[in-house]
Design a protein around this nucleic acid. Structure first.
Lengths: 180, 180
DNA sequence: CCAAACATGTAACGGGTTACATGATTAC
DNA sequence: GTAATCATGTAACCCGTTACATGTTTGG
């Protein structure tokens, strides 16, 4: 139950239409909570039915017609409630780690190529985050909002740093493995 | 489509019944791919129907009766194929980061307690992983299987290390935030 | 005018989660 | 004998994914 709250957050930051939200979920909030346009439209419908958001007037309820949404007081309250409520962290679920475990049984043939590819992807993501940091968080900016946003970005940067190092280490190990 | 392959891996490591698998998914493989007993039974049924595993004979097909499964050649082949095939990494999806982003809009009231709780949980998980490392991976052990298992465990240790540091950093930031 | 891009949806499916159901074995 | 535990399942629901459908505006 996080997608509706991701949408509420995005709409509070800036009222938008479904497609605009989809675009914003390709970056920004999407960096730690991705969603497709189908999910977003489905959820916008529910949020509107629950009275958490409303379509701005002057928007015809027709297909192919842009509909802008804004958050209502009830929606803001719900988001505040959800944000403050305790939640357990989700257990890790990582396919690559599972594949390495499987490789210990059925052999490592073919994985190394994908290890290299994943390393490159994580390096690229890291570079992207670092650019955002330099562009959006110069030393002067430190309003409470900026500090929170920077904290979140820091998590992304440090996570990608961890993964790039780990994949490098993994490839070193593979180089020492017999029959590779 | 990873759960069947997690199960195949577990069954190749050691033939088991559904409940034994469930127990093993609470540790070991479950550290990076968790599953409930309902998921496991559903998937065991499918894997058997597809001819990837079979129930060992001398097991009555009755309710409440233990059924041990072993992997067939077709199952091993499928696991090898899946392990070698290229797969894209899943985008990050983290509730706590989303909550911090929401907190930048609706206020930070109430989150700090949960930050502390999560920090403690990650510290505990880290300690557990470190115990496993000391117990299962003494300097001498370095067969290819051991190296792969150790590599996976290393990912867990380094990930939890990252999270503990990040939560500590987050709490420092919160200490400097006005109105906390 | 027509193709591309914009914009909003519907339908179907599969995996993960939760609640519940049922039979067999063991401990007291 | 009966309560707890072991063991295997069924059913319903929600979310994420994929494929497809439909209408509108804009550029050439």
């Amino acid at each position: 139950m996080s997608l509706p709250h991701a949408i509420l957050t995005a709409l509070l930051e800036k009222p938008s239409s479904g497609l605009e939200l989809t675009r914003r979920f390709d970056k920004s909030i999407g960096y730690f909570w991705s969603a497709t346009h189908q999910q977003i439209y489905r959820e916008l419908g529910r949020l509107e039915a629950e009275g958490h958001i409303r379509a701005l007037p002057a928007a015809q309820p027709a297909r192919g017609q842009k509909k802008n949404y804004e958050v209502l007081a009830a929606g803001r309250d719900e988001l505040a409630r959800w944000t403050a409520a305790g939640q357990d962290p989700k257990p890790l679920r990582d396919t690559m780690l599972l594949r390495l475990r499987a490789a210990a049984v059925v052999g490592t043939t073919g994985i190394e190529t994908d290890l290299r590819r994943h390393l490159a992807l994580h390096q690229r993501q890291l570079a992207e985050y670092q650019e955002i940091e330099q562009r959006d968080f110069p030393p002067g900016k430190d309003s409470p909002q900026d500090r929170l946003h920077h904290l979140v970005l820091r998590a992304g940067i440090d996570l990608e740093t961890f993964w790039t190092r780990w994949f490098e280490h993994a490839l070193e190990e593979f180089a020492q493995l017999p029959g590779s």
